[in-house]
């Protein structure tokens, strides 16, 4: 479904070259919750931004159901975007619009009829459990509620893939648990494929079926979460696991 082949991306930073993504290849199957874990600066966000078509890649291909998305431009790219929903760590909600308008936003952008929008938004509000908050503004919501709005918004156009960028990093442990459960439920009921970027191994072990470990732009290992976590073959995975035990 989502296939990344030999992705390279370099950044020039004051005379030195940072190889943010170095020959990254991944294969995410339909319905997967695919975790991409790594420390800060591992290239996770660059990878997610590439899949989201928010930044370009130097070489390689990214295909979704066989369509090469790295080369889409203009209107065809904008049209394709409804197939990919993105949820960000910082929520990135529209602060001057209420919950309903935020969730309706992507639908209104591509001129969906009003009655369809209303039906879909109410559906999504029920899915993420924000009934009664339709008219509230993001400023009055808790972190967990804001992330629920962001998830509903990302799902509005019924995307094939949901990209999750450190979605629980700003949340407390209990809220994190609730959001992860919500995501798992959504995955099970709607079958939407999820790609989850995180630095927390706990998040991966809780909901990801498969995982790839990214370190300095290189995929150190990937496979079923249970295999990778039980028999880590790379040092970085052991480091990530070790940190988890240290922090409890």
């Amino acid at each position: 479904m989502l296939k990344l082949s030999n992705i390279h991306k370099k950044f020039n930073q004051n005379n030195s070259v940072l190889h943010a993504l170095n020959d990254v290849s991944l294969h995410v199957q339909e319905g997967d919750i695919y975790g991409i874990i790594g420390l800060s600066g591992a290239g996770k966000s660059t990878l997610l931004r590439s899949i989201a078509c928010l930044s370009s890649i130097d070489s390689g291909t990214i295909t979704v159901d066989g369509i090469d998305i790295a080369n889409l431009k203009g209107a065809s790219l904008r049209n394709f975007r409804k197939n990919i929903g993105v949820v960000f760590q910082g929520y990135n909600l529209l602060m001057q619009k209420n919950v309903f308008a935020n969730i309706a936003f992507p639908l209104l952008l591509n001129k969906t009829p009003k009655d369809v929008v209303e039906k879909r938004v109410n559906e999504l509000i029920a899915i993420v459990g924000l009934q009664g908050k339709e008219k509230s503004y993001p400023a009055t919501l808790s972190g967990g509620q804001k992330q629920r709005v962001a998830i509903a918004r990302a799902l509005a156009t019924s995307p094939k893939i949901l990209l999750l960028d450190e979605v629980t990093s700003a949340l407390d442990p209990l809220t994190t648990k609730q959001i992860l459960k919500l995501l798992k439920d959504i995955n099970e009921t709607s079958g939407v494929t999820m790609v989850m970027i995180t630095h927390e191994i706990g998040v991966v072990s809780k909901i990801c079926k498969k995982v790839a470990v990214l370190n300095y732009g290189i995929i150190e290992e990937d496979g079923l979460t249970s295999d990778v976590l039980q028999n880590p073959s790379s040092e970085i995975t052991r480091t990530l696991l070790g940190k988890e035990t240290l922090n409890g």
């Binding site: 990919i84 960000f88 990135n92 529209l94 992507p106 156009t157």
Partner: peptide
Amino acid sequence: DQGVIDASISMGATDFQIITRVYLVE
């Protein structure tokens, strides 16, 4: 916030929509 602009782009907003519905409204 740049993140809000990124989010709008990821939702398929045109440049004009970003100006009129995000920049000027927010």
